[in-house]
Design a protein around this nucleic acid. Structure first.
Length: 609
RNA sequence: GGCGAGGUAGCUCAGUGGUAGAGCAGGGGACUCAUAAGCCCUUGGUCGUGAGUUCAAAUCUCACUCUCGCCA
C-alpha cells in the first residue's frame, strides 16, 4: 500500500554557508530516508527552505550594512548549488520570505487566536531613541550584572556564561551605534503553552516507544522539570511577517514561532506550483500520512514541543481560516529522529572560527558520494561523533574503494574480457546469446549461487528495517557487509581459474555476481546515489534510478525567490530484488571511487583553523 | 546547581539479564579477476570505580567519578 511520507528537513539560517555538521545533523539523513521511501514506491514530499527572518540574518545585515533580504538572497543560490551537487532531492526547497509563507503563518496565528490560545502581555524592552527602534536582546551590550564583565550581550554574558535578563544589564548601549537605550513598555502576543501542556505530554507519551530516547526523555524531562509557560510570539521589528491584527502593524511574528510553520507552508507552496493546490492535504490532514522531522539536537525543543503545541492548538481552525473550507486537524510529527553533534578533529565545530569542513569547499576537491558515505558511517545518531581526516581517508580507501567499488570493477571487467561485454548467458559455453533467454529463478541456479543471492536479497528486509527505523548507520553497515559476502563468494568460486577449464561454470559465477551487484546497487543507492546511478548505467539500464533536481524562480508580491524542485523524470529504481537478464549488454566499466593518498589528511588539517 | 546523554579491544563504535562483538589498525597464510584491491586465520578487553538485587549483570538499583550538551 502506498503511504504518504512527509520528510521535513530543518531550515538553515540564510546567513552562513553549510558545513558537514549541518549535513550530518539533518540534510543528509533526510535525503537518505526520502530516497529509500521513494524506492519503496511511497509518495514522498521532502520540503524545507531557508529561514530568512532569523536574528542571525539581521545581525549580519546590520554588520554588513545591507538589508536582511540581500543577505538571504546571497546564500539561497549557494544552498541550492550545494544540494544539487550533493544530490539532496528536495521536492521543494524554498524560503520563509514568500507571500505564501506569510499567509500560512498568519492563518495559523489567527487559528490559535480563535482557539483562545493567545494572550497579550506588557514587557519591558530596550529602545534606542537615537535609532528610533526597539533593540532585540542581542543588539544590546553592557556590564554583566552577575560577574561585572563590561562587554556582555543582552542575552548572554560571554565571560561568565550566564544567560541574562537583558533588562537588568548595567550601563546598556546599542550594539549598532553605541547609543544609550532606555527601557520602554511594549505589548506582545504570547502562546499559552501552559494550557497546551497536557496535550503535548500526551503527544510525547504516545510516541515514546519508538522515538530516540534522547529526544523523548529530554523533551518530557524538560516539561516535567519546569512546566510549559507562555512564550512571546511577536517582536518589535520591521523585518519579518506582520502580525495580522489591527493596530499591530509595527510588530512582526517571532521567528521561533514562524519558521517551523515552513513545513506546512512549503507543502502548500509545492502543491500550488505543481498545479495541485489541494494536494498538501494528503500529507497534512490525512491521518494515515506520516511526518518525519530531521534536525540537530539544538532544535529538539522546537520540533518535539513547540511545533506540536502550535499544531495541536490550531487544530481544525487552520484549514477553516486558510481555505474557508471544512476544517481538518493538522498531523503531528510521527517521528523526530534528531541527531547529536559532529565534532571536527576532537574539537567542537565552530563556523565563525573556521573550525569546520565546508561542504561546497569539500566538493571542490572530492566527489559527493565519499562525503555522503563518510558522514553516514559516523552519523551522530546516538551520541556526538567525530570527523577525522585520517578516518575519512581510511574509510574511503578500505570500505568504499576496496570492498564495494573494487567488487563492481573486478566483476564487470572480468565479464567484459571473457563474455564480450555482456552478462554471461546460462545456456552454456556457446556464444549464442539472446535477449530472449529467460530470467532464471533462484532455484534454477547452482546451490552456491542460490545461497549467495538469498543472502543478498535478504538485505531488502534487513537494510530496509534499519532504514525504516531511521538507523542509517546500521543500514549502511549491513549493506557493506553484504558486499563483502560477494567478495568471499568470488574467492570461493575463483572464476578466473574456472574460465580456463569450465567456462559455463565461470559464466554462472559471473552471472550470479553481477546479479548480486545489481541488488547491492539498489541497497546502497539511498546512500550513494551518484555512483549507484553510474553503476546502473554500466549494467546496461537506460532509465535512471532517481528523478532529477532543477531550480526555478518563483514570483509573488514580495518579489522573486529561487527554489529547488524535483521531478520524477522516469525514475525506475525499486526496492526489490534484481531480475537480471542473461545476455544483457553491459557498458564499459569505470572505477566508481578514487583511492586517496594518506597525505590528503595532512593537507586538509592544515586548511582548518 | 538541576536535567539529559555518554564512559565496552590501540582507534571508531554496536550490544537493555544467560558463556564479551564488528570494522579499522597489528600478526600469519593461500590466491591473482580487480583501484597492490579481495579472501581465510589470528593477537588484543577484570565492559569508568565501588556496592547491591539475581541462580546469572556490560545490561537492573544506588553511590562516586570523568566527558559532552541543555537549562537556571
Amino acid at each position: 500500500m502506498t503511504q504518504h511520507i512527509l520528510v521535513a528537513v530543518a531550515w538553515p539560517y540564510s546567513n552562513s554557508d553549510i558545513h558537514v555538521g549541518n549535513l550530518a545533523g539533518s540534510y543528509l539523513p533526510a535525503d537518505i530516508f526520502a530516497r529509500y521511501q521513494r524506492l519503496k514506491g511511497n509518495q514522498v514530499l521532502m520540503v524545507s527552505g531557508s529561514d530568512a527572518h532569523g536574528t542571525p540574518i539581521t545581525v549580519k545585515a546590520d554588520a554588513d550594512g545591507v538589508t536582511p533580504e540581500e543577505i538571504y538572497q546571497r546564500y539561497q543560490p549557494r544552498f541550492l548549488d550545494l544540494f544539487q551537487r550533493l544530490g539532496l532531492n528536495y521536492d521543494l526547497f524554498t524560503t520563509t520570505h514568500t507571500e505564501n509563507h506569510f499567509k500560512v503563518s498568519q492563518a495559523l496565528f489567527l487559528a490559535l487566536k480563535e482557539n483562545q490560545l493567545l494572550y497579550t502581555e506588557e514587557q519591558q524592552q530596550w529602545f534606542s531613541p537615537a535609532l528610533n527602534r526597539f533593540l532585540p536582546d542581542r543588539y544590546v551590550e553592557g556590564t554583566c550584572y552577575i560577574c561585572g564583565y563590561d562587554n556582555a550581550r543582552g542575552d548572554q554574558c560571554d565571560n561568565c556564561g550566564n544567560v541574562l535578563d537583558a533588562t537588568q544589564l548595567v550601563s546598556p548601549r546599542a550594539k549598532i551605534d553605541g547609543s544609550v537605550p532606555e527601557l520602554r513598555k511594549t505589548t506582545h502576543f504570547f502562546l499559552d503553552l501552559a494550557k497546551l501542556q497536557p496535550q503535548v505530554i500526551e503527544f510525547l507519551e504516545s510516541r515514546k516507544d519508538y522515538w530516540r530516547p534522547n529526544v523523548v526523555t529530554r523533551s518530557l524531562g524538560w516539561i516535567r522539570s519546569q512546566g510549559l509557560h507562555g512564550r512571546p510570539i511577536t517582536r518589535d521589528l520591521d523585518w519579518g511577517i506582520p502580525v495580522p491584527v489591527e493596530g499591530w502593524e509595527a510588530k512582526r511574528l517571532y521567528v521561533w514561532f514562524e519558521a517551523v510553520i515552513g513545513y506546512l507552508s512549503a507543502a502548500i507552496e509545492w502543491g500550488k506550483i505543481s498545479g495541485q493546490p489541494d494536494a498538501w492535504h494528503r500529507w497534512w490532514t490525512d491521518p494515515a500520512a506520516r511526518a518525519y522531522y530531521f534536525l540537530g539536537k539544538d532544535n529538539i525543543d522546537f520540533h518535539a514541543i513547540l511545533w506540536p503545541a502550535e499544531l495541536i492548538g490550531a487544530a481544525d481552525q487552520f484549514s477553516l481560516i486558510f481555505e474557508g473550507s471544512e476544517g481538518k486537524p493538522l498531523n503531528l510529527p510521527y517521528d523526530v529522529p534528531a541527531n547529536e553533534f559532529l565534532n571536527i578533529q576532537d574539537r567542537k565545530l565552530s563556523g565563525s572560527r573556521n573550525w569546520a569542513v565546508w561542504a561546497l569547499d569539500f566538493l571542490e576537491r572530492y566527489d559527493p558520494d565519499p562525503l555522503r558515505y563518510y558522514l553516514t558511517a559516523i552519523m551522530p545518531e546516538t551520541s556526538d561523533s567525530n570527523w577525522d581526516w585520517d578516518d575519512f581517508v581510511a574509510r574511503n580507501n578500505n570500505e568504499l574503494v576496496a570492498t564495494w567499488g573494487n567488487l563492481a570493477n573486478r566483476v564487470l571487467s572480468f565479464a567484459h574480457r571473457h563474455w564480450d561485454g555482456r552478462v554471461p548467458s546460462l545456456r552454456g559455453v556457446s556464444d549464442e546469446i539472446g535477449q530472449d533467454e529467460a530470467i532464471p529463478k533462484l532455484e534454477e541456479l547452482r546451490p552456491q549461487d542460490r545461497q549467495l543471492l538469498e543472502t543478498i536479497e535478504a538485505g531488502f528486509e534487513s537494510v530496509g528495517a534499519h532504514l525504516e527505523a531511521v538507523k542509517l548507520r546500521a543500514a549502511l553497515g549491513e549493506a557493506i557487509r553484504l558486499a563483502s559476502e560477494v567478495n568471499a563468494y568470488l574467492d570461493a568460486q575463483a572464476p578466473w581459474s574456472a574460465v580456463k577449464t569450465d567456462k559455463a561454470a565461470a559464466g554462472a559465477t559471473i552471472y550470479t555476481a553481477i546479479r548480486a551487484i545489481d541488488n547491492l546497487k539498489i541497497l546502497l543507492s539511498p546512500f550513494l546515489p551518484h555512483t549507484c546511478e553510474q553503476l546502473h548505467q554500466t549494467l546496461g539500464y537506460d532509465a535512471p534510478l532517481f528523478g532529477e533536481q532543477y531550480t526555478e524562480t518563483q514570483s509573488d508580491a514580495l518579489g522573486e525567490h529561487l527554489v529547488l524542485r524535483y521531478r520524477d523524470a522516469g525514475a525506475s529504481g525499486r526496492w526489490a530484488p534484481s531480475t537480471l537478464q542473461p545476455g544483457r549488454s553491459l557498458r564499459q566499466p569505470a572505477p566508481l571511487f578514487k583511492k586517496l593518498e594518506p597525505s590528503v589528511a595532512d593537507e586538509e588539517r592544515a586548511r582548518m583553523g
